[in-house]
Amino acid sequence: MSAADIFVDLLAGRREAATLAPRDWDGVIGVARAEAMLATLAHRLEDAALPPPVAALFADQRAAAKVATAQALWEAEMARRALAPEGIEFVLLKGAAYAAAGLSCSVGRQIGDLDILVLALDIRRAENALLNAGWEWVRSDPYDDHYYRAHMHELPPMIHKARDRMIDVHHTILPRTHRITPDALALVSDAVAVDGGHAVLCPADMTVHCAAHMLADGDLQGGLRNLWDFHCLTRDFAAADTGFWDRLDARADLHGLRAALRRAARLARDLYGSVLPSGWNGQDSGDRWYRRRLLARDDWGRVTHPLLEQAFYIRSHWLRMPPMMLAKHLWTKWRKRK
């Protein structure tokens, strides 16, 4: 059994942590780190019997995740302070939205850039308001800039010059070039208010977006984490609302994302044991390939699929923060001479 299988089993609750041999933990932790889910696992196993070194590492991760979540929510607050006075409404997406809404998947979840959704008609004003409040363009390449504006579903990424954190301003949830065009107006107009003066997508839209983000927009990178989000979201929303699954189907149809939604649901069932309503429980021969891609890590955290082999890059803002630069400096300073 591979480390990735054990990792998924632990999250799903199919396996007791106490049954692992001490040496199994290296692989599990390696996979969890590579998937940016170590703090998620640390929370899931908070009450489990663990070897003391693992328990200590997990306690560190939980504490650090709490700090990181607060930092991510602060970015949302600063965006609110920049946009609200201009009368620009926005909706938080992905990690920041889960945290702002206090959803269970946000506990320990790593949050990268701040993703927000604004109406397409507000995008110019949002851009100006952010530029006035200290954000600036990450790149100044006119080709890139044109590419983003013409083809993507977001502005070119911006970074805050003092806080060194990125914001992605979306006006829909899939690239314009994508054959599917979700109903952005419906996304914004049906958004719901949460604490802190923020808005997040309504439960069904949030879930559809999670599936779209994982399956329709990208290469399944971070797929295990997105799938965990999906598993937690559907479980919690369905527990609170018996009509949730039907609403979810209807909403996916509205956005043209039913196939992605259904596949995400089957994968969440297969990997994390999500309980699906009858009618959702089919099989699809293509799922096997997705499962293999999602679990393609060895016990050093490396991608094992030969076509997808690539180094694990820390894309998140952490690398751009001063302490990270210092760490890099410890051993890459000499490169500048090159």
């Binding site: 180094a311 820390i314 051993w331 890459t332 490169r335």
Partner: peptide, 10 residues
Amino acid sequence: GGDFVVPDAL
């Protein structure tokens, strides 16, 4: 490499 990788390390 390892838990963390710096992308441009020679």
